[in-house]
């Protein structure tokens, strides 16, 4: 797993060990957990957004074209998007294939 440096001296810790950078978890690329990845066939895609709303890892994001962009940095490859796609436009393929 991506390891991001936590080696901070006590004087440099924020008050109460707080984290002041919202959403800094993006530094952790959880995509390397994945063994399979989803591939969308845009000919079949109806831009319904099921992949986006049903993704636990917030991997899909809406774009101007109406399609949803996949982000391999964070996708853990669970396959919910493929299973829930109403048009079977998404298939899971083994990484490296």
């Amino acid at each position: 797993m991506a390891k991001v440096d936590a080696l901070v001296g006590w004087r440099n810790l924020e008050i109460g060990c707080a984290i002041t950078e919202p959403g800094s978890s993006r530094k952790l690329k959880t995509g390397d957990w994945r063994s399979q990845r989803p591939v969308t066939d845009r000919d079949k895609c109806i831009k319904c957004g099921m992949c986006w709303i049903y993704c636990p890892d917030i991997v899909y994001s809406p774009t101007k074209s109406g399609y949803f962009k996949w982000d391999g940095n964070y996708c853990k490859g669970c396959g919910i998007c493929a299973r829930e796609c109403p048009k079977d436009a998404i298939t899971m393929v083994m990484e490296g294939e």
């Binding site: 936590a6 901070v8 109460g16 002041t20």
Partner: peptide, 17 residues
């Protein structure tokens, strides 16, 4: 100004905290 208070103290930081 969103802050995260009371995060998990991993071994790398618990001592310093």
């Amino acid at each position: 100004k969103p802050v995260t208070m009371g995060p998990v103290g991993m071994p790398e930081v618990y001592t310093e905290a």
